[in-house]
Every structure is written in structure tokens, then in C-alpha cells.
Design a protein around this nucleic acid. Structure first.
Lengths: 334, 334
DNA sequence: CAGTGCTCCGTGAACGCTCACGGGAACGTT
DNA sequence: AACGTTCCCGTGAGCGTTCACGGAGCACTG
């Protein structure tokens, strides 16, 4: 492919010259403005069309009314956790007349910096699920309004939205204990760089277990890739290691469902032989068999409040934090 | 609505003045360029920071290297059909170094025009799931590279990507007939404005049924809203109307699953009392109980080829069409 | 016939930034 | 002592568009 030098762009001036009129007249024709003869408009439009003229959105943006574009960075389009968040963000942004550009890091930590870099010079404000401190710093230092979601290690100077899994885990573990479970395996997301750190579901689980008098330790936690397959593989570990779990609590529904299916495939009955509890409350969790008990999070609200925070920052407010409290929905899997 | 009454923007000139240097020096500091004393850089950066200076992306775009932003319009973020398409588009765009902005019409026909309007002056090229001829015309007339997906009434002058449901329906119906079914209800998406039109799944179903010697007519088709609830409600219609279906073929998996769950809730056995077949091949369809037989579509590929077509158009190619052939995956629901 | 209004069109200026160039100071080299 | 070099830094120009203005042409008034 002969990559010739980029041909000069066709400007409004080119069209004007070619149509025998001035810039302004072309502009009037293209933008459906008054003060132009219908006949000239048609002629100009035809010329513009034939030359393949397309106004530069940059030049327009320079002079026109300033409209805000919000960047939304999610971890993975394929992860069913995000659509509802996106939906909330889109709705809230729409109410304010904002544009939204969605970016996905594909859950790849090493891609976060690249995405952050583009975000910085493509949008005016940002709502992001990001883990890499470098990427976070990049956006933060740019000075744009910024809300960081679901990150336990958010620097205090950046706004955030988090889910109160401390409360959530207490409920979930309490529920299992109530059902008579004493050996609970926790399937953690091994993709997170801060595995086991303070405030993570991992450590909150251990804390909640201790509160309920369970002798839980790191041996109760099994790392899993954040996917159905990851959950299935982790379930093999639980079952193969002789841990003797009567219940499984997973980092999220995806992992829980993967694990539950694997357990069934290995001939176990759910919840009789092993109970399962997930986190997030995906629509999916209601549809699987048996329906999954899960800590439901209002993901749409998470998105909406993030946008609200961004708007507040634009209005000069300081950094803040929104907390979403999950609700335990008990279904047939436990 | 664009934001109103904004205070004048802080420009590079403001920072320059305030730091006692020239524009260019500020530019050098901000962009990490050489030819600047480390000390001045620090000082300028500090001033810029304190003034809340953020470079205008429009001004930058005017002069800098021209990068392409691809607009992707989907019908509904919450519809699990789209994530895989988005994923394909993101991957393919990334390979070419393009940006992607995702828009969602929320499956609301009346919002399509508004979205189309923003798309037209926000991006350089477009891949879209759109139904409204007005919105389609708007984008098409703008002259930007444009690929329209999954629309049976695509104007011949615009490129497209479609799914070969003619072949697909033949397989699906054939499969059911082979299993001994003679009364098959079709659950159509009633949200489509072209319901029953030429090339729709609706009419292709009727055609395929006829080919297999079934006396199918419009009475076999039941409209359903495009959601789980829609499928459930339509199933009530099928069951309540005395149609006597032994099998249900739905417009997509979402509707099929909704219908199947409703049937079970009403005490029917699947597939003994009624078999179910969906379209699209969502991940979800593998996870429900019983797993759903479905016409699987390579959605990721659909996205990738759309981007490929856009790229071709930029290189001067004419309009074209990509066809994806669905594959029947037989599972326990039929 | 001058004056008034309306329709249509063109000319500077401005938007905020980067690129290309040029220039001064400080240092070393012949 | 005159001459390069290197390191910083500043100045004009240009990117492509729209806005605010002004002006020509024409018809219609009083």
C-alpha cells in the first residue's frame, strides 16, 4: 500500500472558490442558515458534495459554542457489569446535553496508560474504572474533572464512587452462616493488582467471616480470572484441594456462575452440596439455574452519580465520594 | 442544549503572561518538548496548574496530526447483543489507531435523528445500527464513510453489513421440522418499523416454513417487545390464543429466553411440551436452563468487518456489503 | 426623486494552539 | 580576538471555521 503524503484537506475556501462565492455563503448553505438565495444554496451544496467537502469539527469547535464531552473508561465491554453503568452515565450526560465517548481497556492493566493518554486530550471530563496509579495520575494531573469508580486505593484528592462492600460482605457472610455454613471459600479476582489489600472484597470477606466467628484465613481465598472460565477453574481448585467448602462466595456474579456451573458439571447439587453467592447483581444471575443469590448493586445509579459529581466539579465543588450500598438478594443458589 | 454563558477560557497566552514567558515556552513545558530549561518548565507547569489551564483539544486538533474518530451507534447498551459488536469495532479501530465514540439510541426510533445529528459533527466516520430513514439519510448525506448494520432496507448507495438469516432460518426451521414439529410460533420484534417487510426474520421464517411444507401464515407470528419481559408477554399470547404451538422460534435470544422462562413458569416442560429456538447466539443463551438452541452470529466479526469497510471507503472504495452467515447451535431447549 | 426597507452576499477578525524560524547569551575553539 | 556551538527563548504565520459587520442591488414608499 503506497502511503502517499496526506492530501491537503478540502476547506470551505476551496468550495467557495469553486462555486464562485465567498466562505460565508458556503457556510450559510452548509449550515442551513438564512440570508441566502435558495438557488445559490442548492448550487453550493452540489459543488460541496461533488468535491467531498466535510467541515472540520476542530475548526468548528474552536469558534462555536463550547460543548462538553465526557470520557467514560470501563474495564471491559464484554463484562456484563458495565452496560448498566454505561446506561446510567449516558442518561445523566444526556440530561446535561453532554457527549459521551466510551473507552475500554479490555481489563489489561498495561493498556490503561495508553487509554488515559488519549482520554486526556480527547475529552473535557472523565469517569473511569482504572487501577493503574500511573494512568490515574495522568488524568488527575491534567486537571480535568475526574471521578474514579470502584477503586479502593483512590488518592484522597480525586473524587470517587465506591460500593460499600464492608456492609455487603457482612450481610452475605451472615446469610451463609445463618444457613449453617462454616467452611466458605472466597473466589477472588486475581486480575486486581491490590489483591487482599485494605478495603478489597477479599479482606472484607475475611473480616466479616471473623465477625461471625469463622476461623477464616488466606487459605480460604482462591484466586480466579474475572470470567466464567476463571470461576470454573477456581472451583476446580476449591474442590481439588480438599478444602471442604459447603459454600462459595465469589468476587462477582460472573465468577460465581462459572464456579456454580462447574460444580454442577462435577455432579454436585446446588445448594445442597454447595451454596453459591455472587456480587454485583447482574441480570444474568436471575436467569441461570439455579438463580444466584447475589449482592445487588445499583449500577445505573453508580453511573448517574458519577456524572453528577463531575458536574459538581465543573461548578467548582471540591472532591467528594459517593457510596452505593449493595442489597443481598437471596435466591435458590443458597 | 449547549452549555450557556461560559466564562472566557483560560488560554495558553494567559499562562504565558502570568508566568512571564511566551506562548511557545508554555507549549514546550506542557508538551514535554525539549529546548526548555528544566527550572522554567517546573515554574510554568506550576503556574498552569494553579490557573487551572487545560489546552483546548480543538485548537490542538486544528494544527496537530489529523486523527480519525469513528462513531459507533448502537441501539441499546443494555441489549447483550451489542457488547461483542462493540468489542470487535474497538479492536479493529485500535489496530488502525482510531478513536471510537459510542452512542446509544436506547432503541428509541425518535431519538435516532438527534443522535445522527451529533454523530455528523463529532466524528469522521460512522458504523451504525439505525432504522429511521431520516437519521440514515442525515449521516449518508454528510458524506462521511458510513456502514449501516443489520438493516434490511439499506439504501443501495450506502455500505452495509447484514446477517444471512435466509440461510439461518432455513436451518432453524429445518431443525424443528426434523424434530417433528408442525406448529411453530414465531415471536417477532415489534419494535422494528419494517415488521414483516421483505428480508426480515419475520418473512424469512414464513418462507422457510413454506419450504418445509408448513402452512404458515401471519397467524403464526406474534409480536414481542425486544426484551425478556416482551418474550414472556408474547408467550402468554401464544399460549392463551389456542394456537397449539409445539415449538417457538424467536426474533432473538432475549425474547426466546423470556418466552421459555414464562412457559416453564406455567408448568410446561422444555423441550417436551414446547421447544425453543433463538437468534444471535448470546453468551447468555448457553447459561440459561435449559441451554438455548440458537442461530449463532459472529458479532465480533460483524464489528470488525464494519470497520474494515469504513477503512476501505476512506481509501476510496465504493459501497459494499458484508454478509455474516449464522450457525445453528443445537442445545437442550429443542 | 430621495428615502426606507429588505434580501442577499462578502470582508475582517477572532478562536487557541503548534510549527518554522530567528535571535541573544554563554561557552568553548581556532 | 574573531568565530562556531549549544542552549534557551520569542515572533510571525497558519490551521478552518463562524460571528459581526458593512455594502450592493432592488422594490416600494411618501
Amino acid at each position: 500500500m503506497p502511503t502517499s503524503a496526506r492530501p491537503r484537506r478540502i476547506t470551505i475556501e476551496d468550495v467557495a472558490r469553486s462555486a464562485g462565492v465567498s466562505r460565508q455563503t458556503v457556510s450559510r448553505a452548509v449550515n442551513d442558515k438564512p440570508e441566502i438565495d435558495p438557488a445559490t444554496r442548492q448550487r453550493v451544496l452540489r459543488v460541496a458534495q461533488s468535491m467531498g467537502y466535510r467541515p472540520s469539527r476542530f475548526a468548528r469547535g474552536m469558534v462555536g459554542p463550547r460543548l462538553t464531552t465526557l470520557g467514560l473508561v470501563i474495564a471491559d465491554v464484554l463484562n456484563p457489569f458495565f452496560p448498566e453503568v454505561v446506561s446510567g452515565v449516558l442518561a445523566a450526560a444526556d440530561e446535561r446535553g453532554w457527549q459521551v465517548a466510551v473507552y475500554s481497556t479490555g481489563s489489561a492493566l498495561e493498556r490503561e496508560t495508553a487509554v488515559a493518554r488519549t482520554v486526556v486530550d480527547q475529552v473535557d471530563a472523565c469517569v473511569a474504572f482504572l487501577l493503574d496509579p500511573g494512568a490515574i495520575g495522568l488524568i488527575h494531573r491534567s486537571g480535568m474533572p475526574f471521578v474514579l469508580l470502584d477503586n479502593e486505593h483512590r488518592p484522597p484528592s480525586v473524587s470517587g464512587g465506591r460500593i460499600d462492600f464492608a456492609t455487603g460482605m457482612r450481610h452475605a457472610v451472615g446469610h451463609l452462616v445463618e444457613r449453617g455454613h462454616r467452611r466458605i471459600a472466597m473466589l477472588d479476582d486475581r486480575g486486581r493488582p491490590d489483591a487482599g489489600g485494605h478495603g478489597t472484597r477479599h479482606s472484607l470477606f475475611l473480616g466479616a467471616a471473623a465477625e461471625h466467628g469463622l476461623p477464616a484465613d488466606e487459605g480460604w481465598v482462591f484466586p480466579a480470572a474475572n470470567s466464567l472460565e476463571g470461576g470454573a477453574a477456581a472451583m476446580d481448585d476449591v474442590l481439588g484441594g480438599g478444602f471442604g467448602a459447603t459454600a462459595v462466595l465469589a468476587y462477582n456474579d460472573l465468577i460465581a456462575i462459572g464456579a456454580m456451573r462447574r460444580a454442577r458439571a462435577r455432579g454436585m447439587r446446588v445448594p445442597e452440596d454447595c451454596a453459591f453467592v455472587g456480587c454485583d447483581g447482574l441480570t444474568l444471575s436471575r436467569l441461570v439455574d439455579p438463580p444466584l443469590t447475589t449482592l445487588t448493586v445499583d449500577k445505573e445509579l453508580l453511573g448517574r452519580s458519577a456524572v453528577r459529581q463531575v458536574a459538581a466539579q465543573m461548578a467548582g465543588a471540591g472532591t467528594g465520594e459517593t457510596v452505593i450500598v449493595p442489597r443481598l438478594v437471596v435466591r435458590a443458589s443458597s
